[in-house]
Design a protein around this nucleic acid. Structure first.
Lengths: 352, 352
DNA sequence: CTGAAAGCGCTTACAG
DNA sequence: CTGAAAGCGCTTACAG
């Protein structure tokens, strides 16, 4: 063997070109093609035979090729489905902290309502070559996953929106447990008719929370009444609209479990409009524990979801994958615990 | 002249190496030194005589030198003093929209409580060579300004924290006018004892708002009473603490102008604890018009500050400067209008 | 569709 | 402290 075998990068500070890591010339040699051809594959330029392209891509993947070039500060892409409410801010904050510790800079983008970021976003990612990608409430198509993998860019998803391939690393919270705990809290206070303003059913987290609610009712021997369940987007206005629907009905619930804190505030408003006092006439439980939950009147009882910690865990996962850390590769599904925070929006139902 | 004169970049898509823009070799020629020496100046490596360094830096500035290298997707740095509350999110959102339109990616960082970002941040910026830098409630030291200017990285400041050099581009809101409008609204409702929970006095925007309050009192022929003025950080807890101070006093005000919406929510809580109803017993006006202002009970009357638009304006300013646009260079101080949004937290004082 | 060759823009080890 | 020379990693125009 006339050449030193280039190594697969497995450690070393992020962003620094790794000593001994494969160069374009190494890849060319390993794939049995010229440097020109590898360059064309990498830049999606010029004609390359499909078979050649695949062989080169396989070698790129195998060696974990990353362009050297003048060292640019290492980046990490954070992609939101939607930059919405303090929810996003908590995630940003958690990610920013870890990024700073690890010497990474956060690049922020949003997929603008679409659950999958578009090709222009992916082109941008490939051009800026981040250390990794973190998706929040978004998902990637199979082809997009493959492109990232080919370039050696690892990724993880926070709170996946819909189903995902088994091998996509994810971080979430114990949503089912949270729905269960919220409902049990109300049952223990003596509530029997408990309504739900749920999040959109396309989202896994909403479905899990709703199932937790059902489980709590069932184990308490209470009947599940579909008339007490309404669902909509995770916004204040939806909470308001749906809450009003629920509270105007004949046999209105004495308590409501909301899909998140924003919906809970919408329920607050619906209750105000209908002259119902919280918690005397209506108990409300939220989900998330955003800062605003402490600030409203009355302060909101809610299920705390450790958003900053979830972002931090996901970032550590991506960084571990970028380093080729074996222990990270083994544990790419994480659920962090939720927790009931009792404040002043829940109380026993009035005897009326 | 044996060489074509390299041009100063003045137009063309951001991020693309500009046709005809100066290369390192051009700079060396213009400065009468070798390429090696220019490289050393740029990378702060090796010994370079102070005089040589200055000459080279002058030429770098003059030509607006930007490293070519493999084209990386163009970046824009967004630096927060503190990633706090929905306030930051509005700014991020406004910036993100413009960035997307202009094909820029946002890099997010925070200076962690210090009003000036540290050297490690600056090193990062120099390494990733963004198209520009946007500072939010932060400022740069003179030396940091010079380093950015030398590398041809323009910057602007949103809502500057403290005084700034005259030639630093800034975007703000009409804070004085806002304070005036908020106070006049209360005066017109019949209030005579109007308290203020002001923001920190080190911040220009707080001082301007407070001065607007004084001006409104004076033009209405009302006496300014320093006992009715308290000041603290722009947080809920400070609003709560200071509001309580103000409302527990002997001759309590019938209305409070808060420094921002978060402080106003703190005043809400103080009022609840003291058994004062809003707006019957106490009127409250906020500042910012964050989404939460619509969600609380009662919905908050506030001065709307167009945060997203401010961010957008600042971004356009930076982009204009990066392009060398003359019209941008002429107008680097912008104040966007604030606006009174009347909701349900203000009413005439009770006759008691 | 592929690759040898030239070249680009920058960096670096080293001689002076 | 400075620069000529070699070199790095990649891209590109072009011949086959």
């Amino acid at each position: 063997m006339p050449y030193a075998t280039p190594v697969k990068p497995t450690a070393g500070p992020l962003g620094e070109p790794i000593r001994g890591a494969a160069t374009l010339a190494d890849i060319a040699r390993a794939a049995g093609v010229s440097a020109s051809t590898v360059s064309k594959v990498l830049n999606a330029k010029g004609d390359v035979a499909a078979a050649t392209r695949e062989r080169v891509e396989a070698v790129l993947r195998e060696y974990g090729y990353r362009r050297r070039g003048p060292r640019t500060a290492p980046l990490l892409d954070l992609v939101f489905h939607e930059l919405q409410s303090a929810w996003s801010l908590e995630v940003i904050r958690g990610a920013e902290k870890v990024a700073q510790e690890e010497g990474l800079s956060l690049v922020l983008s949003q997929s603008e309502g679409r659950s999958t970021p578009g090709q222009s976003w992916l082109d941008g990612v490939l051009a800026r070559r981040p250390t990794g990608v973190l998706l929040v409430l978004s998902k990637l198509e199979a082809a997009q996953c493959r492109q990232l993998t080919t370039r050696g860019i690892p990724f993880a998803v926070i709170d996946p929106d819909g189903e995902l391939d088994v091998d996509v690393p994810t971080v979430g919270a114990t949503n089912w447990q949270g729905g269960l705990t919220a409902t049990r809290h109300l049952i223990q206070l003596g509530h029997r008719r408990i309504g739900v303003v749920a999040g959109p059913s396309r989202m896994l987290c909403s479905r899990a929370r709703l199932d937790g609610y059902r489980a709590a009712l069932e184990t308490a021997g209470l009947r599940f009444d579909p008339k007490l369940v309404v669902a909509g987007e995770f916004h204040h206005d939806e909470g308001h609209r749906l809450g009003k629907e629920l509270l105007r009905s004949e046999d209105r619930p004495t308590a409501v479990v909301a899909g998140n804190d924003l919906q809970a505030l919408g329920v607050y408003e619906a209750a105000r409009e209908l002259g119902l006092r919280i918690p005397q006439d209506l108990s409300v439980v939220g989900f998330d524990d955003l800062p605003v939950a402490r600030w409203v009147g009355p302060p909101l009882t809610t299920i705390r979801q450790p958003l900053a910690e979830m972002a931090a865990a996901a970032l550590h996962m991506v960084i571990g994958l970028a380093r080729g850390d074996e222990r990270t590769r083994a544990a790419t599904r994480i659920e962090l615990a939720t927790e009931l925070v009792v404040r002043a929006s829940t109380a026993p139902p009035s005897k009326a």
